[in-house]
Nucleic acid binder design. Structure first.
Lengths: 113, 113
DNA sequence: CTAATTTGATACGGATGCGAAACGACCTTC
DNA sequence: GAAGGTCGTTTCGCATCCGTATCAAATTAG
C-alpha cells in the first residue's frame, strides 16, 4: 500500500465528505473505532477489552455499544464461561455497512491522482 | 493509488484507532469534513458554500466553525467585497494538525499488507 | 461461607450537537 | 430610500455524549 500524505488527506476528505453528504449513520470517532475493531480484529471482544485497547472508560464503551446495537451494527451475547462478561458480536447489517464503506473508500481512491 | 476494500477498512481502523487512543481533538464527521474542505480545496470558503457542498444547514456550519475556531484550526474574516459574507481561512495550527494526520495515515498504510 | 474483586450497566450533572425559526446586518432593486 | 432578498448568527427545545461515582451480579480468594 503506497500513499503520500497529500493523497491520504484527499482520500479522507473524499470519503468523509461523501459520508456526510449521504446522511449516513452519524457515528462518532469512538463509535466507529469500536465498530472497526469488532469487525476487523479477532474475537472475542468484551467491553473491558475494547476499553483497554482504545484507552476509553468502560461507560463510554457501554454507551457506544448501545448506539451500535440500536443501529443494528452489533449484538451483545453473554459469555457462557463467565456470566459477568459480554461478547460483542457482528451482524449482517454491520458487515454490509462496512463493506459499502470500504467500497466508497476504494472508489474515492480511484479518483485521486 | 491502489487499494482493496479490505485494506481500506484496515487503514481506516488503524488511523481512527490511533486518533482515539491519543486523545486528539474530538471532531465530529461534519467538523472534520468542513476542515478538510477548507484546507484541501480552493478558497474562498463561505458558510453558505460549505453548507451547500456538504448538504448541511447553515447553523450546523456556523457551529462547526465555532468549534474549529476554538481549536485554532480556522479563522473567520469578513469579506471586503460583501460584508454579509465571511471567508473561512486556514491557520498554521490547522495545517500542522492535518499534516500530522496525513503522516499518521501514511504510517498506518505502511503497516498494512 | 464470607469477603474481596471483577464486570458491565446506570444515575447524575454538565457539556455539546442538532433542526427550526427568528434575527440583525447588509446588499440589491426599483 | 423603501421593500425585498441574502448571509451568517442566535435562540429555543431537545437529544446525545461525556466522566465520576455507584450499582448489582458473578467470580475468585481465603
Amino acid at each position: 500500500m503506497k500513499i503520500s500524505a497529500r493523497n491520504a488527506l484527499d482520500l479522507w476528505r473524499g470519503a468523509v465528505t461523501e459520508t456526510v453528504r449521504s446522511r449516513g449513520p452519524d457515528l462518532t470517532a469512538r463509535q466507529l473505532a469500536i465498530m472497526l475493531c469488532v469487525y476487523l480484529t479477532e474475537p472475542p471482544h468484551t467491553v473491558r477489552g475494547l476499553a483497554t485497547d482504545l484507552k476509553l472508560r468502560k461507560p463510554a464503551v457501554t454507551r457506544a455499544l448501545d448506539k451500535l446495537e440500536q443501529l443494528g451494527f452489533a449484538r451483545r451475547k453473554s459469555d457462557p464461561d463467565d456470566a459477568r462478561s459480554i461478547l460483542v458480536q457482528r451482524t449482517v447489517r454491520g458487515s454490509v455497512y462496512l463493506s459499502d464503506f470500504g467500497d466508497l473508500v476504494v472508489r474515492t481512491a480511484r479518483q485521486i491522482s
